[in-house]
Every structure is written in C-alpha cells, then in structure tokens.
Design a protein around this nucleic acid. Structure first.
Length: 557
RNA sequence: AGGGGUAUGGCCAAGUCGGUAAGGCACAAGAUUUUGAUUCUUGCAUGCGUAGGUUCGAGUCCUGCUACCCCUGCCA
C-alpha cells in the first residue's frame, strides 16, 4: 500500500524511545487490533485499526487481528465475519495472525490458579450489590471483603468448582487481591473471573467462567508477543492493573507489552457511539448496519466511500491524547479528493424541467461525444443523445435572476454541456403559475468541439435527452444529527434528523444505466453518487449520494 | 482521601537538546475553467488555557491557578 511519509505522533515518539533504549529484542514491533465482536465496525474503529496496522508496517513489525471475545452475552459470529470483511476492505492485512481471546481461556484459567497460589487472588461470595457497597466511592476507601482471607486451598477448590460449572451463575467471583483503599478504583480488588452459564459463540458450552477484560487483555497481548498495546483514553486508569497482572505472572517477565492510550475519534453531525448505532439498527430507524447514513464501515462502503479516502482521512486527523471532534467536512474532503480522478463524470437531472428547442428538427437525434472525465483523458469518451426535447435542472432557470446568475432566464444564452448554446425565449406555465416548460432556440454554429469562438457564454449547464434518458432513483442524504451536545439514551431518537434521507426520481443519460453495484460517478454539478447494491434493479437503478460538490455560488448581492 | 488525563488559529494537529509557531480541513480574495467543480495564487496565531518565575532567549523548564474529559460493571 503506497502512502505518504509517516507522520510523527506521541506514539511513534514513544516507540522510537523504546527502540533507542533497546527495550525489545531486534527492535521488533508488534501491534494488534482487538475488537469485541459485539457490533459492526465504524470509522472510529478504522482509525484505531489503521493506526495499529500502519505502525507495524512503518517499523517492519507485525500486526495481529484478535477478537476480544470474553463476554458471550453480547457477542456473535455475525460480528466476527463483518469485522473481518470490513478490515480487509480497508486494506488491513493480518496475514496468518487471526486470533481469538477465547482460545487462550485454558491458559488464562491456569494463570488465575498461579495468582491464587501466590495469594494474589481469592474467590468472593459477595453479591454484585454488596461488592459495590464494599468498593467505597471516589472520596472514601473501600472495605475488604470478609472472604478476602480464605486459605489458598479453599480458593483453589472454589475456583475449580466455578470452572466446573458447579456453582450458580453470579454466585461467586474471582478477585485480584490488591488494595481496597487505592485511589484508583480499578485497583480495589477488581473481579477477574465471573460465572456465566451462557453458550459462547466459539467455545460453545466448554466454559462456565469467563475472564474480565482487565485481566484477559494483558495476558492476550503478552501471549502474542505484542510490544505496544494501543487503546483509548478511558483505559488510562486501567494501566496499573494491566501492569500488575503481567508483573505477577512468571511467564511474562521478558519484554512485557506496554499499553499506550490515545483519544478516540469524534465527528461532528453524526452518531459514533456503538450503543447508539446499535439502537438505530435494532429499532429500525435506519436500514441496517450498512445504512448509508451511518458512519459504520459497511455504511460508508454502501454510501460509496472508498478505502483510500478513509485511509487518507485517518492519516490526516492524526493521533493525540486530546479529546477532539473532527469536522465531518474533513471526511467529505477526502472522498471528493479520491473520487475526482476515479469517478466518470456523467449527466443526471435530479429535478427536471422540460426544454423544447424550437428550431431543432423534430424527430432528429444526434449523439454528442463527451469525455468520461476530462481530468483523465486516458479513460476515454462516451456519447449521449441530443434532440429537440431535453430536461434541465429546475434550479438552472429563474424568472427573476439575481445579479451574476449565469444560468437560464428569459433572453439569456447558456451552453448545454457537450452540445450547443441555447437561448431562452419563452416560459410556459400551468394554471397554478408553475413553470412547466421552456422554449429555447439553439445556434447550430456553437456545437461543442467545433471551435466556435464568436461569442462567449457565462454559464454551462447539464441536461439529458427527454426521450432517451432513463428514470433513476436517487437517495439524497443529510446529516444524521446536528450536534451531539447533551445527547443521552433517552433524548437521542428525537434528535435524529427526520430529513436525513430524501428519495427522489431523476433522469439519467443512457451511459448511467451501465452502472454496476457500488460503481461511483460524478453526476456533473450534482455531486458524487454510487450505485446502491441493495435496491438497484435492472429497470431502475438506485444511486446513493456520496457527497455533494463544493459550491461557491452565493445567490445574494 | 480522591485518582488519572488534556489545554497550540473556526476544526484537527506538528513542534527532538529551550533559539524566535509545520501541514491539512474550513473560510476569504483573485486567476484559469464547456461542472459557480477541479486546478493555481494569495490571505488567515506578535501568538501556544491563565498568572508569575528562571533565561540573552520559553509553546518547550519551574511555581500557582483555571477549564474540560475519564474512573465507583460480575461490560469492553
């Protein structure tokens, strides 16, 4: 994957220091992306996954994909599959290093036994509620559990029973024995194993106990030889426990992984919280995880975003510890930037107004030739039909034009892209006064490509032939939400933009009808569009608007 | 008896040993243009949360404030 010079950030700085200090043998660098298979990936995950992958590449190291599947209640195989698909699509290659935390369950249980034997873990009978009371709060120390000083033998025996499924779900928990008075809540004897009589999507009914994230994660990293374990800021407080686990296990005294935290991505005008996205999907407010309005990877893909645009975006926003919210305009910039050369440029009229060219012979059709993309002549030309009746965009005509309006109005001449100059002579209205048709005349001498230079015209507009164009369905999108200030579980549904999807019918020139699913186009002056793989039919293709074109046209003054 | 973090232009974000504020997005103006797009050119922090201090010199070092984020799941 070709890409730019590597940007520096505080993580690469830290790695450079580790290398200078010879922390890891042969300067080996090994990263991982550890998603929990409990939902679809979104662009925030892309930032994290790409960060880990890029660092491995940059340092000639290795990258693992590891599913952190330690909680069978929330997880599902469907998510494993979608995550793999999305990461591959993003250009991330884990080679043969696909792992599952669940395949380390036996080892993790043995390490728990090691901790028990060292007097560093104990089985607790306290209920969840009692544990919460005993934990104390931010200002007061907690109390030690009455079960904290059980004998090692008793702990071993009880843990064995937990493991064997002989104890009821939730009845006991294995806890690390650290310090109930620690100012860091994560060090107040955190639970490391809970009893769950739930079928796991991959180990099935083999296990009745499941390790907690804080205990499992450092072990997973260490087993795989990870050097730098990158995660988000909220785990900063968990780092002391991460280090506690590794420092107390004999197997991990050499080159233990180092946890480094960075800020997660926030984006303006959209929903990025996993649980919010899931709620939209579950309540069918959106059309599944791949609804084009969502910033899930699958949603962006269906919308028409390219992997390159997402890679470039993630590269551009950088990595830091600062809580920040990136303007969605940044994402839009990178898809425009990527598609401007890649996407053929065709004509589609989204809000048609009929135009009759009164001096053009009735029944005549001529095919005019146009470049598929004038910025890349390599991809060639195509032809489109032109005749006496065409459609233009309703917004390209104004009865009372403001100053500097270069489009159609009575008496004004414009260029029809790829065809002729036309001048508007007459405006036809219906009984209600709505403009329903324009009568224009064309000048045969002005045909595109003829070299005509007698006079110039300020505006060029797009059009389609009225008889030979085809109906297409167009899905226009607007932001899912205005801003997420004060967004909560309860109010967030009513904050969703009711007009985030608008379905209209447009007319497309014949060339557009060749579109294959997910093929991307620029519809001249209307934006970038992608053929929807779900709803397109042979009769009526459906196009998703990826992003509009920028416009500096301001009607006033 | 709280603890852990973060503050550089409208939004992101570089700023190694202290040497006189990169880049991108957005925005504005102009040029080119058969897309009011693209492209090009120009502009956009005497200033780095704030108040002091050290120094010939401070975004970088020291001290004190302030604001915001995270932590009291048998979630991750």
């Amino acid at each position: 994957m070709e890409h730019t010079e590597n940007k520096t950030n505080f993580i690469t700085n830290a790695i450079n220091h580790d290398i200078a200090d010879k922390v890891y043998k042969n300067d080996r660098i090994h990263t991982r992306f550890p998603p929990e298979p409990n939902g679809y990936l979104h662009i925030g995950h892309a930032k994290a996954a790409l960060l880990n992958y890029r660092i491995a590449q940059q340092y000639n190291g290795k990258f693992n994909l590891r599913f952190d599947d330690t909680n069978p209640i929330k997880e599902d195989m469907e998510y494993v599959d979608s995550i793999k698909k999305d990461l591959s699509w993003l250009g991330i290659d884990w080679e043969d290093r696909l792992f599952f935390a669940s395949s380390y369950f036996e080892k993790m249980a043995n390490y728990a036994v090691e901790l028990i034997k060292k007097g560093l873990a104990f089985v607790d009978d306290l209920t969840a509620d009692e544990m919460r009371e005993y934990r104390g709060n931010l200002n007061e120390p907690g109390k030690e559990s009455p079960y904290r000083n059980r004998s090692i033998e008793e702990n071993l025996n009880l843990f064995e029973q937990m493991k064997a499924g002989k104890l009821p779900e939730g009845s006991r928990v294995l806890r690390a024995k650290i310090d109930m008075a620690s100012p860091n809540m994560n060090m107040r004897d955190p639970a490391i194993y809970r009893i769950l009589h739930t079928t796991h999507h991959s180990t099935k009914d083999e296990w009745f106990i499941f390790p907690m994230y804080d205990y499992a994660h450092p072990i997973e990293d260490a087993i795989e030889g990870i050097t730098h374990s990158l995660c988000t800021l909220e785990f900063e407080d968990h780092r002391p426990f991460y280090e506690w686990v590794l420092s107390n296990l004999n197997d991990f005294q050499n080159e233990p992984p180092r946890q480094i935290e960075f800020a997660m991505l926030n984006l303006t005008k959209t929903i990025l919280g996993k649980r919010f996205i899931k709620q939209l999907v579950d309540e069918k407010i959106v059309d599944g995880w791949d609804d084009p309005r969502l910033v899930t990877i699958s949603g962006l893909r269906r919308r028409g975003y390219t992997p390159e645009s997402i890679q470039n975006f993630c590269e551009a926003i950088g990595i830091a510890k600062n809580n920040s919210t990136v303007d969605i305009a940044m994402l839009e910039h990178f898809i425009r930037d990527d598609l401007k050369f890649k996407a053929p440029r065709l004509m589609t009229v989204l809000d048609p107004l009929k135009v009759t060219i009164t001096n053009y012979p009735e029944g005549q059709v001529e095919w005019v030739e146009l470049p598929l993309n004038q910025e890349d002549p390599e991809i060639g030309n195509y032809c489109t039909p032109f005749s006496r009746e065409i459609y233009v965009e309703r917004s390209d005509f104004l009865e009372l034009p403001p100053k500097k309006f270069y489009r159609l109005f009575s008496g004004n001449e414009v260029r029809l892209r790829g065809a002729y100059f036309v001048v508007c002579n007459e405006v036809i209205k219906d009984a209600a006064g709505k403009v329903i048709e324009l009568k224009c005349t064309y000048d045969p001498a002005t045909r595109s490509g003829s070299g005509f230079a007698e006079r110039k015209v300020k505006g060029t507009i797009h059009w389609v032939d009225a008889n030979l164009s085809k109906k297409v369905e167009i899905h226009l999108y607007d932001n899912l939400i205005d801003d997420d200030e004060g967004l909560t579980k309860d109010n967030f549904l009513e904050r969703i933009n009711p007009n985030s999807l608008k379905i209209i019918e447009g007319y497309a020139e014949p060339e557009v009808m060749k579109a294959k699913p997910l093929e991307k186009f620029q519809f001249i002056r209307n934006g970038f569009f992608s053929a929807d793989p779900k709803y397109s039919t042979l009769e009526v293709p459906v196009f998703n608007q990826i992003v509009s074109l920028k416009s500096s046209w301001k009607p006033e003054k």
